[in-house]
């Protein structure tokens, strides 16, 4: 096994390079990772999806590759984070079991509880992992109360586990955050829109979507460089976050496009939220000393309300179409589907 693993890695790596050249794909790190994972065969879902694409013979568009990466590779990274946390927690568990054994008979119940926890297979499912950590903390506290002799050591272990849990929560939050703007990322958006649309279908309450796109963003990047482009995106993200309520959800959808989900909001109120965003950008402009000076930073916004039963892609498509209409009608304006 120790000999086979590097050899296999080398084969997967060569096969990935061969595929990248065969399908005339840009040799970016993401694309390389994608094809490496495909040939290594770690991920059955990725393998199946790509086999279908290969047998269709349609080739691989940039957008397709990007989708594959965000669906399979990014989630695989998150799963890796969870597995890593699981391993640490397993170690903490083992030392707790030792402590419990040393504490003697009165720790029997605790020992059994721990052994049950350790035997549980929580794989890369973060919900069951969290549930396990919570239970572990409860059991540890109970035990700490029972046993005088072991209580100090138990307290140390409990603290250790609580720190692990915080680290885990942080790692999971990072996996759902766009590192440039600090808003939620596309992956978090995809999960949240499904959840909110499910709730809206259940309750019959309104749910609106804004698609917000920076105007002439390519021009900004081309003229003042990507660092200024990044500042523009951060400024728009901050403005969006200040313009919405606590229950609303702001995400970077991709490139210079942001998506905002507004629960309990009909189209009229959604349009006024969108207008507030537009006015806030005018009221609080991005101030950068640039040569040549940058004109006012504006956004175009498309609004669409969820119709229960509509496929989510269609709903997003309607908001996008309204956004294109806003762009077509001179930018710096709001249009509603």
């Amino acid at each position: 096994m120790y000999l086979a693993a590097p050899l296999q890695a080398k084969c997967s790596s060569e096969a990935a390079m061969a595929s990248i050249s065969r399908y005339e794909i840009m040799p970016t790190p993401d694309n390389y990772t994608l094809w490496y994972e495909y040939h290594a065969g770690h991920h059955a879902g990725l393998r199946r999806t790509m086999d279908v694409l290969i047998s269709n013979g349609d080739g691989f568009e940039e957008a397709t590759l990007h989708d594959l990466t965000s669906t399979f590779i990014s989630s695989a990274k998150e799963a890796e984070v969870i597995r890593e946390a699981s391993r640490s927690i397993q170690e903490a568990l083992r030392s707790l079991i030792e402590v419990a054994h040393r504490a003697g008979a009165e720790a029997d119940d605790f020992g059994i509880a721990l052994t049950n926890l350790a035997a549980r297979n929580y794989g890369d499912n973060k919900e069951s992992l969290r549930e396990m950590v919570d239970q572990l903390i409860r059991e540890s506290r109970k035990m700490a109360g029972k046993s005088q002799s072991a209580s100090a050591e138990m307290k140390d272990r409990s603290t250790e586990i609580e720190i692990l849990e915080r680290n885990l929560a942080q790692a999971l939050a990072d996996a759902r955050t766009d590192s440039l703007t600090g808003t939620a990322n596309r992956k978090a958006f995809d999960a949240t829109i499904r959840k909110l649309a499910g709730d809206a279908m259940n309750s019959g309450d309104d749910l609106a979507l804004l698609m917000v796109d920076a105007d002439r963003f390519k021009h900004v990047n081309d003229t003042w460089g990507h660092q200024v482009g990044d500042e523009v995106l951060r400024h728009i993200a901050a403005t969006l976050k200040h313009s919405v309520r606590g229950q609303d959800f702001v995400a970077r959808y991709g490139g210079e496009e942001f998506a905002v989900l507004l629960p309990f909001t009909d189209s009229k109120s959604a349009i006024s939220v969108a207008e507030n965003v537009r006015h806030a950008l005018i009221r609080e402009p991005l101030r950068l000393a640039l040569t040549p000076p940058m004109g006012p930073l504006t956004v175009s916004i498309g609004v669409a309300c969820y119709e229960p039963g509509d496929p989510l892609a269609e709903w997003i498509g309607r908001a996008d179409a309204a956004l294109y209409q806003a762009k077509g009608e001179g930018r710096d304006c709001v249009r509603c589907a």
């Binding site: 279908m201 259940n202 309750s203 019959g204 229960p308 039963g309």
Partner: peptide, 12 residues
């Protein structure tokens, strides 16, 4: 218990 869900399913 959700009239919306029943209505949507009925429509489909």
């Amino acid at each position: 218990d959700s009239p919306t869900v029943r209505k949507v399913a009925r429509r489909f």
